[in-house]
Design a protein around this nucleic acid. Structure first.
Lengths: 225, 225
DNA sequence: GTTTAGGAGACTGTATACAAGACCAGACAT
DNA sequence: ATGTCTGGTCTTGTATACAGTCTCCTAAAC
């Protein structure tokens, strides 16, 4: 009898392409505004145009790609203002996520949060910057998962990836304070203190916003407005 | 000189199919859990499978469709708990939207809000229930647009459509109090009173939650403020 | 009676083919 | 020089074709 029909987790080219394109965008390998020509992408990935097209639609729905009918798709552009705007949304969403996570605290989610924090710490110790960014996103997402709200999780995933994108684009690395903020947020959630958890989450995002603005002030000139 | 290269707003089958499938889902024409067979949909819409496939990916990203590789797509199912969970997210998001809209108030957005409210009122007077639902969603979306936050708008559109879906599924029609709540929220935004606007928005969503729970036939509890 | 092998049909995943729109460059007219 | 026509080319939109896999039904074996 077939043994793994459930656990198979089939790999489709479409999913692989989506992951790869998203990775290229988040890493900056595909710069903002880059034209996404289906033929070229398909050739460079060794697949046909169909999986590429479907991936582009998904990335467009997530906000990473802009599509204009008949004119093609480009990597979305992110003005400084749009980057800053995201932090407002994050404070609202992640504040809610932290509050709900504290309310619904469970041994499982606590273990999951600690696990991700530990992976992040190891990445920090190892100086693996790209892994740090990954686990940072994973931690915030784990908070969302701990909230036990499916639509919240659905929303948060692209939102957090977008935040990761913004940081990679602006070269705004977070310092060690980001780590301590994660720890205290994690503790508040595990302790079940809703108000404290929400406050920690909001403060953390506000702190990230300051890092972002500082980095923008350093590195970016303002040719447009 | 070329006359309309910009305003063309090209129609693609993909967009038409996406709109039509979303409409069928929101209207309940496609019930929860319905299998979405690409061949059949393509035939019923008079197109090939490709536009249908791309539409399904988009609807999946928006949360209306669940896709399992190699097994196909189905209309998402919405448990009572998941339906209720959405209201938590809405309170956070729409509260933020109302606050930002009040902060960024402008004659344009005020006119837009009043326009949608007027359309909604006409639909109410005419007893056009499906139009009422449409304009209700449009009003909430207009608040999001008035906030002047592009990512917030991007998030809110599927979220509000999902809310509309939930109401159509549970036959939880909102009474006239929904109308007066809209008006007072609109006024608070135009007046620029951030705290009042946010409070009105949160209260409105809370009111919607009560209608939902009443329709579902469960006792209203107050797990959160 | 229950279980298991196997095969037919159905459906998805992927590739290829064709049609139509958009861009670019050069020719031509004004 | 400016403008606009025209052909060629590139790219997207859509359709079709084929391969792989899943489901389900049937039948044989225990």
């Amino acid at each position: 009898m077939t043994d793994l029909t459930l656990g198979a987790a089939h790999r489709t080219l479409r999913d692989e392409v989506t992951k790869e394109l998203r990775r290229r965008i988040l890493s900056g390998e595909l710069a903002q505004g880059t034209r996404l020509v289906e033929d070229r992408l398909a050739a460079s990935l060794g697949v046909s145009r169909n999986p590429v097209r479907e991936s582009i639609r998904v990335l467009a729905a997530e906000g990473f790609v802009q599509v204009v009918p008949r004119l093609g798709a480009t990597v979305a552009t992110l003005s400084t203002e749009e980057g800053e705007e995201l932090f407002d949304v994050r404070m609202a969403i992640e504040g809610l996520a932290a509050r709900l996570a504290a309310r619904k605290r469970s041994p499982d989610s606590a273990a999951r949060l600690r696990q991700v924090l530990d992976q992040a710490r190891q990445a920090v110790d190892g100086g693996r910057l790209e892994a740090v960014a990954e686990f940072n996103t994973a931690f915030h997402l784990a908070v969302g998962e701990a909230a036990g709200n499916s639509y919240l999780s659905l929303m948060m995933k692209p939102m957090l990836q977008r935040a990761q994108w913004i940081f990679s684009q602006t070269a705004a690395a977070r310092g060690p304070h980001s780590w301590t903020e994660h720890v205290s947020l994690c503790e508040a959630i595990i302790a079940g203190d809703e108000d404290e958890a929400q406050a920690r989450a909001v403060a953390h995002v506000a702190s990230a916003r300051r890092s972002f603005l500082a980095a923008v002030g350093r590195t970016v000139k303002h040719p447009n407005d």
